[in-house]
Design a protein around this nucleic acid. Structure first.
Length: 488
DNA sequence: GTAGGGTTAG
């Protein structure tokens, strides 16, 4: 194609062919913008103007590019929304997709900015992009995790007013959201009210049973299952696997094993999920040998382990045996042609950190990039163990990388871990760093606990930094995290 | 984003 315009093009996305610029030579041109560069430009933009300028430096915005960027700056909510709005207003050739709206709605709702959330919903509707059942799943999930489950149910029941009909799908989704946030009882009540109207199916029952299992209420889950059978519905393999996991989760190892034998007796086709549940369940209970035995036996039974099965075994070897044996299994899985995923690496890295092999852990973090990208959990584990081992500089180094080249921004946990570590050495510099981290996290839409604010504040005062303490107080009052009756 | 197995400490 047109080679001369290549330096201007994004390598990953299509751009229209532009005539080469007459004012610059090929040699002095900027290198092509890659995703990391674009993302960093957006993150660095101080105001709407510089953001707009950045947006114009990209010749063609595509829905795919926008979604990728929103995903990457997820943990910088306010900036992500600014980017979404700026693009919406300034680019005539680009129109936000339904998926981009869903992303933005998710971010706004996570920031508990419900006004912005619903403005986006109506904008979405006026452009005939939705809201879709997925949009409502996102919104209700955010309300539930903000502790507003009642409101979430009301929103579900008013879906049709937004041009989105409720059905069995969306009903099951709501039940699942409630159950996953440990509100099985509420989900069950709702289920009993509406099961006739939505024609609840075996999936609805499975969701409720799993909800009780998550609360370690296996007997309640069994009741729900009896109800399912009484209503003439047929349990599925998923049903059995939910109950199997339920027994192990609630520490009923013997009952779990008996249930598994019963599954065999009833000629239920036991699958890789059932076996993985056993491998993990026995291991967590400290029965590592049993765990290994199940692992070996499943192959004999004609069921091949999955990456998740390997992850389970590797994890329990790290926890209950030793990391060296876990690494043997890790090598074995590679030899057999499995591709480890982020969970595999996270488990191994955590195991190495726990065994105080921090440098090897960091080596594995680099090795990880051959198969997948490190995720937030990877960084948090390494940072946590660096801090615990007193290597605070190393922790800060990893943290800095996250804000630079890495495609993974710090989250609430990252900030909490690091701020906590800034009190260990009890010096003024660390306290100042803690203060800066606190300001930065608020800037990125995370809400620190009152405890964190007060701790940093006290630390700054004790180390004689009244000036920065005042700044913290300002931020604290902006967040509504000041103690009762407190006045600036 | 209608359900089940691996990452979250001890």
């Amino acid at each position: 194609m047109n080679q001369s315009s290549k330096p201007f093009k994004l390598t990953i996305f299509k751009t229209p062919q532009k005539p080469p610029s007459t004012t610059t030579t090929t040699f002095s041109r900027q290198p092509p913008l890659d995703l990391t560069t674009i993302t960093n430009l957006i993150l660095k933009a101080e105001n709407q103007d510089s953001l707009t300028q950045t947006l114009h430096s990209i010749s063609e915005w595509t829905p795919h590019l926008v979604q990728t960027i929103l995903k990457r700056i997820w943990n910088h909510g306010p900036k992500a929304l600014l980017f979404f709005d700026a693009l919406d207003m300034n680019h005539h050739s680009y129109r936000h997709s339904a998926a981009a709206f869903d992303h933005a709605i998710d971010i706004a709702a996570r920031l508990q900015d419900y006004k912005a959330t619903w403005t986006l919903v109506s904008k979405m509707r006026s452009r005939k992009l939705g809201p879709t059942p997925k949009t409502f799943a996102i919104i209700t999930e955010r309300y539930v995790s903000a502790g507003k489950a009642d409101k979430a149910v009301k929103i579900f029941l008013s879906m049709h007013e937004h041009g989105c009909q409720q059905d069995l799908h969306s009903f099951n989704t709501l039940l699942d959201i409630l159950c996953k946030s440990k509100r099985a009882e509420m989900a069950y009540k709702l289920f009993k009210i509406f099961r006739g109207r939505f024609r609840a199916d075996v999936i609805s029952y499975n969701i409720i049973a799993n909800g009780f299992c998550l609360k370690k209420q296996t007997p309640r889950a069994m009741e729900v299952m009896r109800e399912l059978v009484d209503r003439g519905l047929e349990p599925t393999l998923t049903t059995y696997n939910i109950l199997l996991k339920g027994f192990f989760r609630s520490g009923q190892i013997k009952e779990g094993w008996e249930f598994f034998m019963e599954m065999k007796k009833r000629k239920i086709e036991i699958d890789v999920v059932s076996y993985t549940t056993l491998v993990h369940g026995f291991g967590i209970a400290g029965e590592v040998e049993k765990s290994r035995k199940v692992f070996d036996e499943m192959i004999g039974a004609g069921v091949l382990p999955s990456v998740a099965t390997y992850n389970a075994l590797i994890q329990i070897l790290c926890k209950k045996d030793c990391v060296e044996n876990a690494l043997l299994v890790f090598d074995e899985m590679l030899k057999k042609g499995y591709v480890p995923n982020a969970t595999t690496y996270n488990v191994v890295i955590r195991g190495l950190c726990h065994a105080e092999k921090l440098d090897t852990a960091i080596e594995y973090m680099d090795k990880m990039r051959q198969d997948c990208e490190p995720v937030i959990q990877t960084f948090n584990v390494v940072i946590r163990y660096c801090c615990d081992g007193g290597e605070i500089e190393k922790a800060l180094e990893v943290f800095e990388k996250m804000n630079g080249g890495e495609n993974c921004l710090p989250n609430l946990d990252t900030y909490n871990i690091l701020i906590g570590a800034m009190f260990v050495r009890k010096n003024a510099d660390d306290l100042l760093t803690a203060g800066k981290l606190l300001v930065e996290m608020v800037d990125r839409g995370f809400l620190p606990r009152k405890f964190t604010f007060n701790r940093v504040l006290n630390g700054l005062m004790l180390t004689g930094n009244q000036g920065f303490a005042k700044e913290i107080l300002r931020v604290q009052s902006k967040c509504g995290r000041l103690p009762r009756n407190f006045r600036l």
